[in-house]
């Protein structure tokens, strides 16, 4: 139980750290620290785990997942016996990346890849303010640039000016938008959207939904209804239910995932706002615990600022800029 040992000695470590900061001013990366800590040792010690724990916790990985990771690493080290900091570093990154699920083939993240369904129907869900509409705009743009015909559905009929906001994105991405008036039944908009997509032979239909806190039972039911209605029009639709998570969200993202999965069977995750200082570590636990892959990351407000998720790159990001 590395966590226990390391945690119990917290305050002492504090002093130790201060002391070392004085002695060693060159520490600038997690790897640098690692190197210093494992030099001349052949077992993993509390200090390494302490450091790792801080990196993970401050990246919002969460206590339970951090414990999991540390346990895995201890087991691996016992089995494989690392020799250098470099090896340990690789091992740590490897263990963390492994926790995250790989994407499913039938829902390729690569925008140019052929899609198994036509139209491929995507429903985008999430709590308020995570960036659903922006993500949809970017996705539509990327699909279009990859030569696919795209249709968007303004399923957020609740929030003030949500339809207008999506309209602007539809213009930017140069894709048609199916909409009804503010306050209309979102399930009807969803139905219209995929009906239009079918009629026009569109490759992709992306349906927006109103942001809602996962604790609002009635609103979650409404979402489930939207999904059912789509399935009635095209069996298996939506083929993709994308849950958008804000990288700055902490442990509550687990609750969000749980509730949205419960209501609409989320298939993939998008992690937005990674262009700030938040590391978005919570997706590790979400992906692992609920067996849902991360598909995209949002890295800015421009239309091109959406990237296909890369596990290695993401883990790299967790350790970037640790303690300057």
């Amino acid at each position: 139980m590395g966590f226990l040992d390391t945690f119990t000695n917290w305050n002492d470590d504090d002093e130790q750290e201060k002391l070392e900061e004085g002695l060693d001013k060159t520490r600038d990366s997690f790897f640098g620290k690692l190197d210093r800590m494992v030099r001349g040792k052949d077992t993993i010690d509390a200090e390494v785990l302490d450091e790792l724990e801080e990196v993970l916790i401050t990246s919002d990985v969460g206590v339970d997942t951090t414990l999991d990771i540390i346990d895995h690493i201890k087991a691996r080290v016992e089995r494989d016996q690392y020799v250098s900091a470099q090896e340990l570093d690789g091992l740590i990154r490897d263990e963390i990346a492994k926790l995250m699920l790989e994407g499913a083939e039938e829902r390729p993240a690569d925008f140019t890849a052929p899609l198994p369904n036509q139209p491929h129907v995507i429903m985008v869900v999430g709590v308020n303010g995570v960036g659903k509409t922006t993500t949809i705009g970017k996705m539509a743009h990327k699909y279009r640039r990859a030569g696919k015909s795209v249709l968007m559905g303004a399923g957020d009929t609740f929030r003030a000016a949500a339809i207008e906001q999506l309209e602007v994105w539809a213009d930017r991405a140069e894709v048609p938008l199916i909409k009804q008036a503010h306050g209309a039944d979102p399930a009807a908009v969803a139905y219209d959207t995929i009906e239009a997509a079918e009629a026009r032979g569109a490759d992709v239909a992306i349906v927006d939904t109103a942001g809602r806190l996962h604790t609002k039972g009635g609103l979650m039911d409404e979402l489930a209804k939207m999904k059912r209605v789509m399935g009635r029009k095209i069996p298996d639709a939506p083929h993709e239910v994308l849950l958008v998570l804000d990288a700055s969200t902490g442990q509550n993202a687990l609750r969000q995932a749980e509730e949205f999965i419960d209501s609409v069977d989320v298939t993939d995750l998008a992690l937005t706002k990674l262009d700030g200082t938040a590391k978005g570590g919570i997706v590790i636990g979400v992906s692992h615990q609920f067996q849902v892959p991360v598909k995209y990351i949002g890295v800015g407000e421009e239309i091109d600022d959406l990237q296909v998720f890369d596990r290695k790159g993401f883990v790299q990001g967790l350790f970037k800029g640790v303690e300057g």
């Binding site: 804000d246 990288a247 902490g250 200082t277």
Partner: peptide
């Protein structure tokens, strides 16, 4: 500030 914010709250 969003009350669901995690560790990054201190930075912002």
């Amino acid at each position: 500030v969003d009350s669901m914010t995690g560790q990054d709250a201190v930075n912002t």
